[in-house]
C-alpha cells in the first residue's frame, strides 16, 4: 500500500428499533449519536463493519483523519463580514 487512506464515517440515522447487532457495530465503530463523525483506516475489517450498517451511515474516503475540533470547525459558519473601519479612524 502506497498511502494510507481513511474512511470518514458519519452516522445519519440512529439504530433505534434495529437488531442489537447493529447497535453493537455502531458502538464498535465509535458512533454514539446521530451526525457523529469518526475516522478509521481503510481495512477489510472496517469495510465489513460499514457494510453491516450501510443503511445508517454516510461514508467518504479521505486522505487524513481530522481531529474532533476540525470536524466541529467545518460546521461553524463563515462570519460573512469584517470590520473595515472603526469609529474615529481616518477613512
Amino acid at each position: 500500500m502506497s498511502t494510507q487512506t481513511y474512511f470518514r464515517i458519519t452516522l445519519m440515522r440512529s439504530a433505534i428499533g434495529l437488531p442489537y447487532k447493529s447497535t453493537g457495530v455502531l458502538k464498535a465503530l465509535g458512533l454514539r449519536k446521530r451526525m457523529a463523525t469518526v475516522f478509521h483506516p481503510v481495512t477489510p475489517a472496517v469495510a465489513g463493519q460499514i457494510m453491516k450498517v450501510k443503511e445508517l451511515v454516510a461514508v467518504r474516503e479521505v486522505e487524513r483523519p481530522l481531529t474532533k475540533q476540525e470536524v466541529h470547525m467545518e460546521r461553524v459558519p463563515d462570519p460573512g463580514f469584517y470590520i473595515e473601519r472603526r469609529l474615529g479612524e481616518e477613512g
Binding site: D78, G80, F81, Y82, I83, E84, R85, R86, L87, G88
Partner: peptide
Amino acid sequence: HGVSPGDVLRLNR
C-alpha cells in the same frame, strides 16, 4: 459582539 456604533463593516459573502 466586538462592534460599536459608528463602525463600518464590509460584507463579503
